[in-house]
Amino acid sequence: TIAAHGRPCMDMGARRAHERAAVSAARAAIIGGFQGTSDLEAAKRYGIRCIGTAAHAFTLLHDTERDAFDSQVAKLGAGTTLLVDTYDIRQGVINAVEAARAAGGELGAVRLDSGDLVAQAFKVRGQLDAMGATSTKITVTSDLDEYAIAALGAAPVDSYGVGTKLVTGSGVPTAALVYKVVQREDSNGETVLVAKKAESKSTVGGRKVAGRVLGEDGYATEELLLVGTSFEEGQALLAERGARPLQVQLVRGGQIDADAWGSEALSRAQERHLRARNELPYQAWRLSEGEAAIPTRYEKVG
């Protein structure tokens, strides 16, 4: 969504994930700035805007492309999105616009799913405008990730449908996050910090409290991890160091905080994510693989 620069991104990855994982992925996508999902269960469960287009198979099941478009428009109205690249894109656009107008309206959008998306977007925009369909939008799909979306920045695209590389993790299909023991009590009841020292898999011992240090301009300068302190004490220490707390307590006294699962939890999480993202400095928005957005500093306390 950072790469999209305000253009809507839609989750279309449900077919690439386990059905329950797809629902969780859709929820995470909304928190991260997406504006809709093709997953019906996620839309129902979390009140997310439900979106989608027909598949190529839908067009192939009809005798002609125009028959397929007429059928979809008859059911969903002229404002629907028609997939125009099953056969020939130029003719597909003609068929799509004419099908919508035959139903008494202007076509909502066309979807491009193959080929050189940048070049195709310019050609289709010109064709639509020449036909007087200036309000018809263009959405693109086809194995998009943040880098492909960034490359489409100058193209006349109105929205992106992101699937496989959203829900599978793309080149890093697992987050490599695991639980590790970081401290224990010795025979005297004293806390001892423990850490793994294996090459390339070392850890940092001690319970950690995370904060973000902001500069005078309001942008983040570093993430601060306080090591070896309790959550409550850590909050006070972060305040002393001028750092904003990053963690939220979800379990209190062994009970899950009801606010974490309430009807407003998703919108609050989305707002929190947006606030945190807006604190990032300019260099953190550059798409450069392998570079940390902002530095992280450890400070041992206690």
Score class of each variant (00 low, 15 high):
residue 237 L to A: 14
residue 195 A to V: 00
residue 51 I to L: 07
residue 21 A to F: 04
residue 268 R to I: 04
residue 26 A to G: 09
residue 76 L to F: 15
residue 195 A to F: 02
residue 38 S to I: 09
residue 240 E to P: 06
residue 42 A to Q: 10
residue 254 G to L: 05
residue 112 L to C: 05
residue 5 H to D: 14
residue 266 L to H: 03
residue 208 K to N: 02
residue 77 G to Y: 11
residue 127 Q to D: 14
residue 112 L to S: 02
residue 295 P to I: 00
residue 190 E to R: 10
residue 80 T to F: 09
residue 3 A to D: 01
residue 117 L to F: 05
residue 214 L to K: 11
residue 128 L to Q: 01
residue 107 L to T: 01
residue 298 Y to T: 00
residue 262 G to H: 08
residue 296 T to W: 09
residue 139 T to Q: 09
residue 61 L to A: 15
residue 113 D to I: 01
residue 220 A to W: 05
residue 293 A to L: 11
residue 160 Y to V: 01
residue 19 E to C: 04
residue 218 G to K: 04
residue 141 T to A: 15
residue 124 V to M: 01
residue 254 G to C: 09
residue 146 E to Y: 09
residue 79 G to E: 14
residue 281 P to V: 07
residue 31 I to K: 03
residue 174 T to P: 00
residue 245 P to G: 11
residue 21 A to T: 12
residue 287 L to T: 02
residue 298 Y to K: 10
residue 171 G to V: 05
residue 26 A to Q: 05
residue 274 L to N: 11
residue 163 G to R: 12
residue 167 V to K: 02
residue 54 A to P: 09
residue 233 E to W: 11
residue 76 L to T: 13
residue 297 R to V: 09
residue 7 R to T: 02
residue 200 S to D: 10
residue 66 R to V: 15
residue 19 E to R: 11
residue 228 G to V: 00
residue 10 M to S: 07
residue 68 A to H: 04
residue 158 D to E: 10
residue 168 T to D: 00
residue 210 A to Y: 12
residue 230 S to P: 00
residue 202 S to E: 09
residue 61 L to S: 15
residue 214 L to H: 07
residue 27 R to N: 07
residue 282 Y to N: 06
residue 284 A to E: 05
residue 129 D to C: 03
residue 106 E to D: 14
residue 47 G to S: 13
residue 183 Q to V: 00
residue 191 T to N: 01
residue 217 D to M: 03
residue 14 A to N: 06
residue 173 P to L: 04
residue 133 A to G: 08
residue 30 I to S: 10
residue 192 V to R: 06
residue 82 L to I: 07
residue 249 Q to G: 02
residue 284 A to P: 03
residue 162 V to P: 06
residue 197 K to Q: 08
residue 142 S to H: 15
residue 201 K to S: 10
residue 215 G to M: 08
residue 148 A to N: 08
residue 114 S to D: 15
residue 122 F to K: 03
residue 51 I to N: 07
residue 296 T to F: 06
residue 196 K to G: 03
residue 129 D to N: 11
residue 146 E to W: 06
residue 129 D to I: 01
residue 232 E to K: 13
residue 200 S to W: 03
residue 61 L to W: 14
residue 182 V to L: 01
residue 178 V to A: 15
residue 147 Y to N: 04
residue 139 T to R: 14
residue 139 T to W: 09
residue 167 V to L: 04
residue 215 G to Y: 12
residue 201 K to N: 12
residue 14 A to F: 07
residue 80 T to D: 12
residue 278 N to V: 00
residue 231 F to W: 08
residue 264 E to A: 14
residue 302 G to K: 02
residue 121 A to S: 15
residue 41 E to Y: 12
residue 27 R to Q: 13
residue 214 L to Y: 05
residue 114 S to W: 10
residue 187 S to K: 14
residue 48 I to Q: 10
residue 174 T to S: 11
residue 119 A to E: 15
residue 62 H to S: 10
residue 62 H to R: 06
residue 173 P to G: 03
residue 71 S to H: 15
residue 163 G to A: 13
residue 237 L to F: 05
residue 57 A to P: 01
residue 128 L to F: 04
residue 13 G to K: 06
residue 51 I to M: 14
residue 296 T to K: 08
residue 169 G to F: 05
residue 189 G to A: 08
residue 237 L to S: 07
residue 225 L to D: 12
residue 221 T to W: 04
residue 38 S to N: 06
residue 189 G to H: 08
residue 187 S to P: 00
residue 104 G to S: 08
residue 54 A to R: 11
residue 292 A to K: 10
residue 66 R to H: 15
residue 221 T to S: 12
residue 82 L to T: 08
residue 45 R to A: 14
